[in-house]
Structures are given as structure tokens and as C-alpha cells.
Design a protein around this nucleic acid. Sequence first.
DNA 1: TTTTGAGTTGTTCGA
DNA 2: GTCGAACAACTCAAA
Length: 433
Amino acid sequence: MTQKVSLFWFRRDLRLEDNKALNAALNSGNIVLPLFIFDQEILNKLEVNDARVAFIHQCLESINRKLTALRSGLSVYTGRPSDVFKKLLAEFDLEAVYTNADYEPYALKRDSEISDLLGKHNIPLRTFKDQVIFEPNEVLKGDGQPYLVYTPYMKSWRAKLAETAIKIDSEFKGGNLIQRETFPWISLRELGFEKSAITVQNADLSSSLIDNYQANRNTPSKSGTSRLGPHLRFGTVSIRKMIMLGLESKDDTFLKELVWREFFMQILFHFPHSSTQCFKPQYDRIEWRNNPEEFQKWCEGQTGYPLVDAGMRELNATGFMHNRVRMLVGSFLCKHLLIDWRLGEAYFASKLLDYEMSSNVGNWQWVAGCGVDAAPYFRIFNPHTQIDKFDPKHLYIKKWVPELNELTYPLPMVDHKFARERCLNTYKAALNR
DNA sequence: TTTTGAGTTGTTCGA
DNA sequence: GTCGAACAACTCAAA
């Protein structure tokens, strides 16, 4: 008689500690087979040196080393998840599949298909809340509808948190892991990818950073932000631990930023069309100019506006851009150049190590003025004033635009005052129709 | 149902 | 240099 197996499926929770579904699988009474699938449909869209694939692979190696020390290992497959599961169904006597819930549109569709496939064999797909404190349907208005405005959402979220005990399983003890000689493993090269020059910074979050978050987070030349994005995206840190750190601080700005993450997640969950359409439909009447040469200059950091160019060059070189500068480059693209926010969103998606669809779409719609709880459209960032306010000594600009005072640095590609008025007129024309 | 207060991150203009 | 108002109404959320 073969032994019953609980399969644990890693997705965006690449850690062994405080992993809800993994713990549940280990407590199921069956032996546990840990699994990761590189989804071919996602890989196909990426460059061969995509740093995110390299980072995921590195995380899997780390997990595999820890499992090997327990005489087990991680099985890594590539392909369409449904094809991989068909193979696994033939090979193992599965009792159940354990995994942590993922609320993005693509993930929901994928999991629904896998659940149907397993269901045909009477095998349940057991999903757990792990990547959020509150799921999209847990924080709702009095009438049962989702919140569309951040502040009341945040207040409701915090009230609910106050009556919730957060449980953290900080140690991984192993337990009923499957014991085998070898596990299917795929190297980065076999996947068709290369190591990237760009790497993810460690998640070494100090309490002083959180205590001084509000004071330092808007200065791009300082290390005032947490750089947690990639770790929250791929689950190399536990959101529960991060929330506890936020709660321990007198400054709750960091905590509120983590609430923004869940705010935009619940928006995308309830309004999946907002990934491609303006949340406020009248904004889809805006006549974007979408000039390809101008878009190219923006992408390359050759606009002639130093803080815009510094931000884009930081992004291109490191896969990261400071939050303050993200707002400015976004505003510049949509408002000064009148280029559709969707093009900016797609460019960020291709470059950001911390790319999170819900946050990226939500914030691009915010900056374009067309989203839930968006900035008013007449709020147009002034690229000069932002330097005076947030990089007065030009420390950040000079780091990324060393030729700032040379003749080789381009003149501003468009006059600020002219662009501002053109933007206001274009928006007005669309909204008054 | 109606009312009321409020709404992430800014800029410009004129006194 | 500094300050307050205007920007443009609108929608949300809760009482």
C-alpha cells in the first residue's frame, strides 16, 4: 500500500517559517511533498536575464538546502500547472493539496482550474490565508460592499486588527516531510534564464527605520524606505511579522503603508477590470498623445528633467525606484507627456523587482487621476519644485545623472508651464463631454 | 432618504 | 519669503 501524501504547493510564499498552508500540511497526518512550479505561461513573457526569476530560483535553492538537511527536498517543475498536476496525480496517492491563497485575477483562474482538476479525483485544494492580514471580503462597509476610499478602509482595518490575535509560527520544525533520494530539480539555465546583474536587497528591517519612517521616507538620497517590496511579493518575509514591527513603533506610517497594500489588493479583487480600464470610466475618454519617441525618452531617462531622469535610470539599473520619484515620473508621463497610464504601468511591470499588480495598477490610476480615491487631476507635480523639496542638495540626482551640468545632458523635452496647461485642457475636454 | 464631513503624497497666484 | 485660497466639483461613508 502506498502512503497518502499531502502536497504543499509554494507560490508567492517562499519561506519555511510562519507559512500557514505548509504548517497545515505538516499537521495533516500525511507525509508532505513540497512543490514549486515555474509557470511556463508566465516565463514566456520575460527576458532571459529577468532578475525576478533569478531571485525566485535563489529562494528555492535556499529552501531546498534546508529541506535536504532534513533528508527531504523540494520538487521543482516547469510547465503549465494543470499539466504538472496531471503528472503528480499519476505518481502519488494524494490526500489533499495545501496552498496559500492568492487573490490576483490570473492566480484565481489558475487555482480554480486546479481545484476542478483535483476535484475529479476527489482531492481537495485547501487554501489558507497567509499573504494578507485581512482578505478582500473581510473588511467591508456596513452595507457589505467593498471600500473605495483608503482612509475609512484603513480605520476599519485597524479596528478589526485590534480585536484580532496575530499568531506567528516563527520556527520551522520539519516533521512529516517526504524522504527521498532525489527530487525533480530544474536549474536556472535549464529554465532558459541567466543570472542577473540586478539582485534583491536583504530584508534587514531595523526598528529605527520604522520609527523614523515618516521623517525619512520622502528623501530619495536616504535609505529611509523599507525595501520590503520584493520580499512581500514573493513571501520571503511574513506579513504578520511586518505588521507586528509596525505595531511596536510610535510612528504608524509604516503600518499604514502595509494597509495600502491590502487596500489595493481588495480593489483589484473586487474590480478586476481595473487592471486594464480606468476605474472612473469618463477618464477613458482622455485623448492620450502616446508619442512613441517621447515614451522612449521617458523610459531611458532622457527627458531633460533631472529628477525624472534620475528615477528612470535608477529603475533601469537596479529594478527599484524610490517611492517619491515613482510618483513624479508617473505624473510626468501621464500629465506632461499625455501618455496613457497603462504604458507606464506595463513598463514598471517589466522592470520592478517588487512588481505587485494591485499596487502598481492602483498607484498608476491614482497618479493619472482615474482610480479609486485618486489624486485630483489638476494636481500636477512640478519636476523642479520636487527637487527643491526632496533633493535640495542634488545628492540623488547627481548619483544617477552625473552629466547633469555637462553639455551632453538634454534640454527639457517639453516646457513645464506649456505641458501643464495642455494637460488641464485635455483632461477638461474629456471630463466635460 | 437626506445630510454632513471628508478625501495620501501638489502647485500656482496674489496679497 | 510666506501665507491662504483656488484649483472643480464629486463621491464616498456613515449617521
